[in-house]
Design a protein around this nucleic acid. Structure first.
Lengths: 163, 163
DNA sequence: CAGAATATTTCGGAGACCGATGTAACCTGG
DNA sequence: CCAGGTTACATCGGTCTCCGAAATATTCTG
């Protein structure tokens, strides 16, 4: 029965200890749900799973990539990426070729269809998110923007301590 | 590099227009993955799915709650909550009673086992997250903390525009 | 009190992941 | 140069997170 000792600021450098942990987790959960939901709403038609979109984004910048590279970059298990790429090949979004340097590996690259889908998705997604961001005060937007690098660092830290 | 034909931007008040959208989405995805992974690592034994933990947290503060209330508060479909509560009842974490005021509704409440599981989970989770936060600079931590309210607002905005 | 509105449950389904296992294709030490 | 170990993947099976549609009690209302 914790009688929450929270009100007249004792004098700690860091406000609530475990409080941040919970709020942060909750925020991430909510944002993820909200993002997924709005994407579903924006795209009742041709649904493109987020996991696939993210792979397309990586491929858009590092074209022929191997399954393992994609997995590492996205911090996913290779089996996961393998499966996703399989679906994407069926959907014609990417193409797989054998890496001449190492015939075990495959060189995955975007197809024109993949590039087009990615562009369309990004456009709609940005429009939507920008609209939501636009509903915030400039100050709030600024705070969010400022936190992005730290959030990435935090994710890295979690991954790392994990290993 | 590929000539990106992207930016009909007249002149926005904010620096990068769609860039934030992508970074934010990416950050959320990464954090969610990292959180899930570290939780799996911390709890190889008795696994308690995050969705269930979140319901336990709500119940810890608003004890007898109805399925619909939980769904609304968590922004989930009632069918989702119904299913989760079903599992939690089997696990003995919560108990369901008929709401005397409306016999269609059920009054869900925590059991001692549920309270205990929640406490154990929270303890381990906070420990882990605090460790990761501790690896950041005080400044980064501060920036993250400062962004939390805005992130919640953003999630709300997305949910709302959605409806 | 019949029909409409509500609170839940049950189904079926899709996405997002992982770990174990199987299989080619490398790469070594002898 | 070749047996054995190490990659790089693909495949399977399994868990978790969710949703929407349809079925079922209840409650409310004209």
């Amino acid at each position: 029965m914790p009688p929450q000792p929270r009100s007249p600021e004792p004098q700690a450098v860091t406000p609530a200890p475990g409080q941040d942990a919970r709020l942060l987790t909750e925020a991430v959960t909510r944002l993820r749900r909200a993002l997924r939901a709005s994407i579903r709403t924006d795209y009742p038609w041709e649904q493109l799973p987020m996991a696939q979109v993210e792979l397309l984004q990586v491929l858009a910048e590092h074209s022929p990539a191997r399954i393992g590279d994609l997995a590492t970059r996205q911090r996913l298990a290779t089996s996961t990426v393998s499966g996703l790429i399989g679906q994407m090949i069926n959907a014609g979004l990417v193409a797989r070729a054998v890496d001449p340097a190492d015939r075990r590996a495959s060189a995955v690259s975007l197809t024109d269809a993949g590039r087009a889908q990615l562009a369309a998705w990004a456009e709609a997604h940005e429009r939507r998110l920008d609209a939501a961001l636009g509903a915030l005060d400039e100050e709030e937007r600024e705070v969010v923007r400022a936190a992005l690098p730290a959030l990435f660092r935090l994710a890295e830290q979690l991954d790392e301590t994990d290993r």
